[in-house]
Design a protein around this nucleic acid. Sequence first.
DNA 1: AACGAAAACAACCGCATACGT
DNA 2: CACGTATGCGGTTGTTTTCGT
Length: 192
Amino acid sequence: MDKKPCNSQDVEVRKGPWTMEEDLILINYIANHGEGVWNSLAKSAGLKRTGKSCRLRWLNYLRPDVRRGNITPEEQLLIMELHAKWGNRWSKIAKHLPGRTDNEIKNYWRTRIQKHIKQAENMNGQAASHEQNDHQEGSSSHMSSAGPTETYSPTSYSANIDNTFQGPFLTETNDNIWSMEDIWSMQLLNGD
DNA sequence: AACGAAAACAACCGCATACGT
DNA sequence: CACGTATGCGGTTGTTTTCGT
């Protein structure tokens, strides 16, 4: 583990948010060559990223079958059930939610569901005895509160998908803003 | 309209495991 | 069997966006 890359070149590794260019390169490369050994893929594609980073970007964002946007009530219910059953086994849970990634589910859980659970616990905890409920793994009884606390919009997700695409992407200055549809249509044009 | 706080999301990091040599 | 490398997973952090004052 003392890999000191003495090469003065090729050691620069990009970090941070992916650019449109990088996305396109990765998509194009995988479209033409398929997924492979990620480290060499990154190199061959000419990306100054680690294989790890490329893999993550592809799995969580660029893959064509990734479904982004609103988690449906059904999905939320499923997530809660599976989390009660398995705890933080996000990848395992994600396998039961087609198109969803472990990262997305994990974020969703942390930012929304966990918040509601905490609130519910506080309300219950004030009346009941205060246990050490810091980690909710294994205990599923409190999950029942998630329904009413969240204000669902009872729209079918097929209708939602279109809306969710324009969520973070459409801005007034669409300098560096693009949607996955754009990217895929571009890569189709480029692809041979 | 400006500012600050909170929420949501994307990406990175470290560790564990699987696999090949 | 030991070692090295690649991949997958879960936790955490940083950045951006949204909301309230």
